[in-house]
Amino acid sequence: MADTATETSPLDGRAGSRADSAVIVEHPHLGKIDLRGDPGDTAFVDAVAEAIGAAPPIVANTVATAGKNSILWLGPDEWLLVTPEGNQGQAEGALRTALEGQHVSIVDTTDARTTIRLHGANARNVLMKGCPLDLHPRAFGPGQCAQSILAKADVLIHQLDDAPTYDIHVLCSFSRYLWDWLADAAKEFS
């Protein structure tokens, strides 16, 4: 009899942080689509807005949000669409239809990364222990994102609110290491 494939998360069953002020929770399987195109071309911008509900942000290190879709700026011609679990096929199809015939790249990278959500009054202090970004509220706030390094792992950090809450997108192969690093970094706040 054939086995049934089940989705498993790389961080399943991993012990978390005991600090209430720096909680870590995995949000596995979020849909993630890497999108490239020319932001100076209105046909491209309009088609993405039609398919996703939000135009790709032009300002560096910012996020455009429409309902449950977020489009994160990755570079001058590259974005990551983050969409709810299971929605990536539909979202990719909508992008392909809207961008038909245009010089673009649409790649489903859902399974490349998992997402660790770090939340609480000391969340910023935990991040600051291993990340060279200026995370002070005057420089980095809700609706902003940045690719950088966290404890030597490549990450994409997206600040969601003032709690503060951060979504840390990290390659699955680095996720156990980073999860354990975050749990350890949060220890002093428990």
Partner: peptide, 10 residues
């Protein structure tokens, strides 16, 4: 030129 000022290690 794209992201703004970042630390050398990046």
């Amino acid at each position: 030129p794209y992201c703004g000022p970042r630390q050398q290690t990046e």
